[in-house]
């Protein structure tokens, strides 16, 4: 399994921060929303790296910042030994071909007044300067790859269902022959039966095009199905990170345990006696002192309120940000 295989790192994120300035209160004090706060991780080539977290944990911002769709406040994004945060805006546009994103909302991510062939072919026009004939051929090929047919080329997005729209969005991304894809909750807007089919498509595409995914989701079942590596985010920070086996079977962080416990069990007689996270996620403008999770953690002690825990390695490739990690 991936733990043992020595793989090349494709994307390496170091101390990435993204603060959004906001003005609050009577004096319009300048405060910052710490959407992504000091995040470090590595994505090995041709793997699926999943980022899980509640809403408001900053996982979507992370995905956008990695692609520089949002400029990071500080930190490094190293893609294939090149610092992605330092390259100029002009070369960024050329670079974008290799890194694509599929967003969570398939209903708003396609231009409503453009034909499918234009939506998919636009990137080809920008990057490869193909003739309209070549574009049509390439678009047709790509549509077939994502499970649509040639005749869908000359239709408008509103004529498609959610699942089909997500396929079109996928076609738009893969037509540029990218190496790295950010999947930002690609199935959260779809119904369950379609979700499975779309996930299967992503899995197939990954192996046939040797892609690397940064998979952002809140659904642990999807993580289990898709990913090789998992990072659990809470209030802009990674709480636990490791291979899927480590995080799921040797869970070390209380938050991850609580998240696992909150997966519903499809049995009416099942009485949930396990602990689940209480309350809401705190505000990321004014995050709790010390360990960010101490307000909701059942094991919190005095030290958790005062000191921020370090991101420590507890076994090979398994990291935890907790004062009292649960190690069996």
């Amino acid at each position: 399994m991936p733990t043992e295989v020595k793989t090349e790192t494709l994307l390496s994120v170091e101390n990435l921060k993204k603060y959004f300035p906001v003005k609050r209160g009577a004096f319009r004090r300048l405060l910052y929303v710490r959407a992504v706060d000091d995040v470090t991780f590595q994505v090995p080539k041709e793997s699926v790296f999943a980022v899980v977290g509640e809403s408001g944990s900053g996982k979507t911002t992370l995905g956008r910042t990695v692609l520089r769709l949002i400029e990071p406040t500080s930190g490094k994004i190293i893609y294939k030994n090149e610092d992605f945060t330092k390259i100029s805006l002009k070369s960024l546009r050329i670079f974008r071909r290799k890194m694509q994103i599929i967003s969570q909302d398939p209903y708003n991510s396609l231009h409503p007044r453009k034909l499918v062939k234009d939506i998919i072919g636009e990137g080809l026009k920008i990057h490869f300067h193909m003739s309209s004939n070549e574009i049509l051929d390439t678009v047709k090929e790509t549509l077939e790859r994502v499970g649509l047919r040639e005749e869908h080329m000359f239709r408008y997005p509103h004529e498609f269902s959610g699942g089909q729209r997500q396929r079109i969005a996928t076609a738009r991304a893969i037509v540029l022959k990218p190496e790295f894809l950010v999947l930002d909750e690609p199935t959260s807007a779809l119904d369950v039966s379609v979700q499975a089919i779309i996930l299967k498509m992503f899995k197939d595409l990954k192996s046939s095009l040797s892609l690397t995914y940064l998979f952002i989701t809140h659904d642990l079942a999807v993580v289990d199905y898709m990913s090789d590596y998992v990072a659990v985010m809470y209030l802009g920070q990674i709480m636990e990170m490791g291979t899927k086996e480590d995080v799921f079977n040797n869970t070390a962080h209380p938050y991850t345990i609580l998240l696992m416990n909150s997966i519903p069990v499809p049995d009416p007689r099942h009485k949930n006696k396990k602990m689940i996270p209480k309350g809401e996620i705190p505000s990321s403008i004014n995050p709790p002192s010390g360990c960010r999770f101490h307000t909701r953690c059942p094991y919190a002690k005095e030290v958790c309120k005062k000191e921020e825990p370090k991101f420590v390695k507890i076994s090979k490739g398994h990291f935890v940000k907790c004062h009292f990690p649960i190690i069996e």
């Binding site: 546009r93 991510s109 636009e122």
Partner: peptide, 22 residues
């Protein structure tokens, strides 16, 4: 602010293309 504009930016379109064609 629509996601389809961000999507076309992610594809690599420049400002003038986005502004006048989208």
């Amino acid at each position: 602010k629509q996601p389809y504009i961000e999507a076309i930016r992610a594809v690599g379109a420049g400002n003038s293309r986005i502004m006048f064609l989208h």
